[in-house]
Amino acid sequence: MTDVAALDNRPVANSYLATALDDHDDAHGGHRTSLGLSNMKLAMWLFLGSECLLFGALISTYLLSKARFVTEVVAGNPLVTSTMPAELIQEFAESQSVEPMYDIPFTSASSFILLMSSLTMVLAHKATVEDNGQNKIWLSATALLGSIFIAGQVYEFTAFYREGLTYTGNLFGSAFYTLTGFHGAHVTGGILMLLSLVYMAFRGKLRSDRAETVELVGLYWHFVDIVWVLIFTIVYLIP
Protein backbone atom coordinates (compact mmCIF):
# COMPACT_ATOMS: atom_id res chain seq x y z
CA MET A 1 0.00 0.00 0.00
CA THR A 2 1.26 3.42 -0.88
CA ASP A 3 2.25 5.49 2.06
CA VAL A 4 -0.25 8.31 1.90
CA ALA A 5 1.34 10.05 4.86
CA ALA A 6 4.25 10.99 2.64
CA LEU A 7 1.94 13.24 0.69
CA ASP A 8 1.07 15.44 3.58
CA ASN A 9 2.87 18.57 2.52
CA ARG A 10 2.22 18.20 -1.18
CA PRO A 11 -0.73 19.67 -3.04
CA VAL A 12 -2.79 16.69 -3.97
CA ALA A 13 -4.83 18.13 -6.77
CA ASN A 14 -3.44 17.21 -10.18
CA SER A 15 -0.84 14.92 -8.72
CA TYR A 16 -0.71 11.42 -10.10
CA LEU A 17 -1.27 9.97 -6.67
CA ALA A 18 -4.66 11.60 -6.49
CA THR A 19 -5.84 10.06 -9.71
CA ALA A 20 -4.24 6.66 -9.26
CA LEU A 21 -6.16 3.51 -9.84
CA ASP A 22 -6.94 1.03 -7.18
CA ASP A 23 -3.56 0.35 -5.69
CA HIS A 24 -4.11 -3.36 -5.54
CA ASP A 25 -4.22 -3.65 -9.33
CA ASP A 26 -1.16 -1.58 -9.65
CA ALA A 27 1.03 -3.80 -7.59
CA HIS A 28 0.90 -6.35 -10.34
CA GLY A 29 3.29 -4.09 -12.21
CA GLY A 30 4.27 -6.06 -15.24
CA HIS A 31 0.87 -7.58 -15.75
CA ARG A 32 -1.21 -4.59 -16.48
CA THR A 33 -1.97 -4.64 -20.17
CA SER A 34 -3.40 -1.85 -22.21
CA LEU A 35 -4.73 -3.99 -25.03
CA GLY A 36 -6.21 -6.75 -22.93
CA LEU A 37 -3.85 -9.17 -24.68
CA SER A 38 -1.21 -11.39 -23.20
CA ASN A 39 2.32 -10.03 -23.56
CA MET A 40 3.72 -13.44 -24.36
CA LYS A 41 1.25 -14.06 -27.13
CA LEU A 42 1.78 -10.65 -28.66
CA ALA A 43 5.53 -11.20 -28.56
CA MET A 44 5.18 -14.61 -30.19
CA TRP A 45 3.15 -13.17 -33.04
CA LEU A 46 5.70 -10.42 -33.56
CA PHE A 47 8.45 -13.01 -33.65
CA LEU A 48 6.52 -15.06 -36.20
CA GLY A 49 6.10 -11.91 -38.29
CA SER A 50 9.84 -11.54 -38.26
CA GLU A 51 10.22 -15.17 -39.30
CA CYS A 52 8.13 -14.40 -42.41
CA LEU A 53 10.94 -12.21 -43.67
CA LEU A 54 13.50 -14.88 -42.81
CA PHE A 55 11.81 -17.70 -44.69
CA GLY A 56 10.82 -15.30 -47.47
CA ALA A 57 14.49 -14.56 -48.06
CA LEU A 58 15.40 -18.24 -48.01
CA ILE A 59 12.62 -19.23 -50.39
CA SER A 60 13.56 -16.36 -52.73
CA THR A 61 17.18 -17.41 -52.67
CA TYR A 62 16.13 -20.93 -53.53
CA LEU A 63 13.93 -19.84 -56.45
CA LEU A 64 16.60 -17.57 -57.81
CA SER A 65 19.30 -20.19 -57.50
CA LYS A 66 17.10 -22.73 -59.21
CA ALA A 67 16.38 -20.36 -62.10
CA ARG A 68 20.02 -19.55 -62.60
CA PHE A 69 21.08 -23.14 -62.16
CA VAL A 70 18.90 -24.21 -65.04
CA THR A 71 19.54 -21.45 -67.55
CA GLU A 72 22.86 -19.85 -66.88
CA VAL A 73 25.17 -22.19 -65.14
CA VAL A 74 27.42 -22.91 -68.01
CA ALA A 75 27.59 -19.33 -69.09
CA GLY A 76 28.33 -18.60 -65.45
CA ASN A 77 31.18 -16.30 -65.78
CA PRO A 78 32.98 -17.36 -68.90
CA LEU A 79 35.74 -14.94 -68.17
CA VAL A 80 36.48 -16.66 -64.93
CA THR A 81 35.98 -20.03 -66.47
CA SER A 82 38.52 -19.15 -69.10
CA THR A 83 41.19 -19.12 -66.48
CA MET A 84 40.30 -22.54 -65.13
CA PRO A 85 42.27 -25.60 -66.13
CA ALA A 86 40.34 -27.90 -68.45
CA GLU A 87 39.83 -30.66 -65.90
CA LEU A 88 38.19 -28.24 -63.52
CA ILE A 89 35.83 -27.13 -66.25
CA GLN A 90 35.00 -30.76 -66.85
CA GLU A 91 34.34 -31.34 -63.18
CA PHE A 92 32.21 -28.24 -63.10
CA ALA A 93 30.10 -29.40 -66.02
CA GLU A 94 29.51 -32.72 -64.27
CA SER A 95 28.43 -31.04 -61.05
CA GLN A 96 25.82 -29.16 -63.02
CA SER A 97 24.30 -32.31 -64.41
CA VAL A 98 23.10 -33.36 -60.96
CA GLU A 99 19.43 -32.62 -60.54
CA PRO A 100 17.28 -33.61 -57.62
CA MET A 101 14.89 -36.47 -58.24
CA TYR A 102 12.05 -35.63 -55.92
CA ASP A 103 10.15 -38.53 -54.51
CA ILE A 104 6.73 -36.88 -54.47
CA PRO A 105 4.77 -39.71 -52.80
CA PHE A 106 7.34 -39.88 -50.03
CA THR A 107 7.36 -36.13 -49.45
CA SER A 108 3.56 -36.04 -49.61
CA ALA A 109 3.48 -38.57 -46.81
CA SER A 110 5.84 -36.55 -44.64
CA SER A 111 3.89 -33.36 -45.39
CA PHE A 112 0.79 -35.16 -44.26
CA ILE A 113 2.52 -36.23 -41.07
CA LEU A 114 3.48 -32.65 -40.30
CA LEU A 115 -0.08 -31.48 -40.94
CA MET A 116 -1.35 -34.17 -38.61
CA SER A 117 1.04 -32.98 -35.91
CA SER A 118 -0.66 -29.59 -36.12
CA LEU A 119 -3.95 -31.28 -35.36
CA THR A 120 -2.52 -33.10 -32.35
CA MET A 121 -0.99 -29.83 -31.21
CA VAL A 122 -4.32 -27.99 -31.10
CA LEU A 123 -5.88 -30.96 -29.38
CA ALA A 124 -3.11 -30.83 -26.79
CA HIS A 125 -3.86 -27.18 -26.21
CA LYS A 126 -7.55 -27.89 -25.89
CA ALA A 127 -6.88 -30.72 -23.47
CA THR A 128 -4.71 -28.41 -21.38
CA VAL A 129 -7.36 -25.69 -21.29
CA GLU A 130 -9.94 -28.27 -20.26
CA ASP A 131 -7.44 -29.83 -17.88
CA ASN A 132 -8.74 -33.29 -18.76
CA GLY A 133 -5.42 -35.04 -18.41
CA GLN A 134 -5.13 -35.92 -22.07
CA ASN A 135 -2.56 -33.30 -22.93
CA LYS A 136 0.36 -35.64 -22.30
CA ILE A 137 -0.97 -37.97 -24.97
CA TRP A 138 -1.46 -35.29 -27.57
CA LEU A 139 1.84 -33.58 -26.81
CA SER A 140 3.69 -36.86 -27.08
CA ALA A 141 1.93 -37.56 -30.36
CA THR A 142 2.94 -34.16 -31.71
CA ALA A 143 6.56 -34.64 -30.73
CA LEU A 144 6.52 -38.10 -32.24
CA LEU A 145 5.02 -36.94 -35.54
CA GLY A 146 7.55 -34.11 -35.70
CA SER A 147 10.35 -36.61 -35.15
CA ILE A 148 9.03 -38.82 -37.92
CA PHE A 149 9.06 -35.82 -40.23
CA ILE A 150 12.67 -35.06 -39.32
CA ALA A 151 13.60 -38.70 -39.83
CA GLY A 152 12.00 -38.54 -43.27
CA GLN A 153 14.00 -35.44 -44.08
CA VAL A 154 17.22 -37.12 -43.01
CA TYR A 155 16.35 -40.08 -45.21
CA GLU A 156 15.60 -37.78 -48.15
CA PHE A 157 18.86 -35.88 -47.73
CA THR A 158 20.82 -39.11 -47.66
CA ALA A 159 19.10 -40.32 -50.79
CA PHE A 160 19.84 -37.10 -52.66
CA TYR A 161 23.40 -37.13 -51.43
CA ARG A 162 23.87 -40.62 -52.80
CA GLU A 163 22.53 -39.46 -56.13
CA GLY A 164 25.30 -36.87 -56.15
CA LEU A 165 23.46 -33.76 -55.08
CA THR A 166 25.86 -32.39 -52.50
CA TYR A 167 25.81 -29.21 -50.46
CA THR A 168 28.91 -27.85 -52.13
CA GLY A 169 28.51 -29.36 -55.58
CA ASN A 170 26.38 -26.74 -57.21
CA LEU A 171 24.21 -23.72 -56.59
CA PHE A 172 21.00 -25.74 -56.52
CA GLY A 173 22.32 -28.10 -53.88
CA SER A 174 23.40 -25.27 -51.60
CA ALA A 175 20.04 -23.54 -51.91
CA PHE A 176 17.93 -26.67 -51.50
CA TYR A 177 19.73 -27.98 -48.44
CA THR A 178 19.86 -24.56 -46.80
CA LEU A 179 16.14 -23.90 -47.20
CA THR A 180 14.94 -27.31 -46.13
CA GLY A 181 17.67 -27.53 -43.50
CA PHE A 182 16.59 -24.26 -41.94
CA HIS A 183 13.05 -25.55 -41.79
CA GLY A 184 14.27 -28.81 -40.31
CA ALA A 185 16.19 -26.90 -37.64
CA HIS A 186 13.02 -25.03 -36.76
CA VAL A 187 11.13 -28.31 -36.45
CA THR A 188 13.88 -29.71 -34.26
CA GLY A 189 13.70 -26.69 -31.99
CA GLY A 190 9.96 -27.23 -31.78
CA ILE A 191 10.42 -30.87 -30.84
CA LEU A 192 12.74 -29.85 -28.00
CA MET A 193 10.10 -27.48 -26.68
CA LEU A 194 7.43 -30.15 -27.03
CA LEU A 195 9.52 -32.68 -25.15
CA SER A 196 9.92 -30.19 -22.33
CA LEU A 197 6.16 -29.82 -22.24
CA VAL A 198 5.69 -33.58 -22.30
CA TYR A 199 8.02 -33.84 -19.31
CA MET A 200 6.03 -31.19 -17.47
CA ALA A 201 2.76 -32.89 -18.40
CA PHE A 202 3.88 -36.23 -17.04
CA ARG A 203 5.04 -34.54 -13.84
CA GLY A 204 1.52 -33.17 -13.60
CA LYS A 205 2.70 -29.59 -13.88
CA LEU A 206 0.96 -28.72 -17.10
CA ARG A 207 -2.46 -27.76 -15.86
CA SER A 208 -4.92 -25.29 -17.25
CA ASP A 209 -3.07 -22.39 -15.60
CA ARG A 210 -0.26 -23.02 -18.02
CA ALA A 211 -2.47 -23.38 -21.08
CA GLU A 212 -0.87 -20.30 -22.53
CA THR A 213 2.55 -21.95 -22.54
CA VAL A 214 1.10 -24.78 -24.62
CA GLU A 215 -0.60 -22.27 -26.87
CA LEU A 216 2.68 -20.41 -27.48
CA VAL A 217 4.55 -23.56 -28.40
CA GLY A 218 1.55 -24.40 -30.57
CA LEU A 219 1.75 -21.08 -32.43
CA TYR A 220 5.38 -21.73 -33.19
CA TRP A 221 4.65 -25.28 -34.24
CA HIS A 222 1.83 -24.29 -36.58
CA PHE A 223 4.00 -21.59 -38.11
CA VAL A 224 6.65 -24.16 -38.90
CA ASP A 225 3.91 -26.24 -40.42
CA ILE A 226 2.74 -23.32 -42.54
CA VAL A 227 6.25 -22.82 -43.84
CA TRP A 228 6.29 -26.44 -44.90
CA VAL A 229 2.97 -25.94 -46.69
CA LEU A 230 4.75 -23.29 -48.75
CA ILE A 231 7.92 -25.29 -49.27
CA PHE A 232 6.04 -28.41 -50.28
CA THR A 233 4.15 -26.60 -53.01
CA ILE A 234 6.82 -24.21 -54.21
CA VAL A 235 9.85 -26.47 -54.00
CA TYR A 236 8.45 -29.93 -54.62
CA LEU A 237 5.30 -29.62 -56.68
CA ILE A 238 6.14 -26.71 -59.00
CA PRO A 239 9.16 -27.80 -61.00
Binding site: S65, R68, V73, M84, Y167, N170, T178
Partner: peptide, 25 residues
Amino acid sequence: TVAQVLLSTDRLFGANFFNVEQGAD
Protein backbone atom coordinates in the same frame (compact mmCIF):
# COMPACT_ATOMS: atom_id res chain seq x y z
CA THR B 1 20.55 -12.79 -40.98
CA VAL B 2 19.76 -14.79 -44.10
CA ALA B 3 22.37 -12.94 -46.15
CA GLN B 4 24.99 -13.61 -43.49
CA VAL B 5 24.00 -17.24 -43.12
CA LEU B 6 24.36 -17.68 -46.89
CA LEU B 7 27.74 -15.98 -46.84
CA SER B 8 28.90 -17.94 -43.79
CA THR B 9 28.01 -21.25 -45.39
CA ASP B 10 29.87 -20.12 -48.51
CA ARG B 11 32.96 -19.18 -46.60
CA LEU B 12 32.99 -21.90 -43.95
CA PHE B 13 31.39 -24.90 -45.64
CA GLY B 14 31.92 -24.31 -49.34
CA ALA B 15 28.36 -23.55 -50.41
CA ASN B 16 27.86 -21.71 -53.69
CA PHE B 17 25.43 -18.87 -53.05
CA PHE B 18 27.81 -16.20 -54.27
CA ASN B 19 30.05 -18.41 -56.35
CA VAL B 20 29.86 -16.81 -59.79
CA GLU B 21 31.51 -19.78 -61.43
CA GLN B 22 28.53 -21.86 -60.37
CA GLY B 23 26.08 -19.43 -61.88
CA ALA B 24 25.36 -17.40 -58.78
CA ASP B 25 24.40 -13.78 -59.20
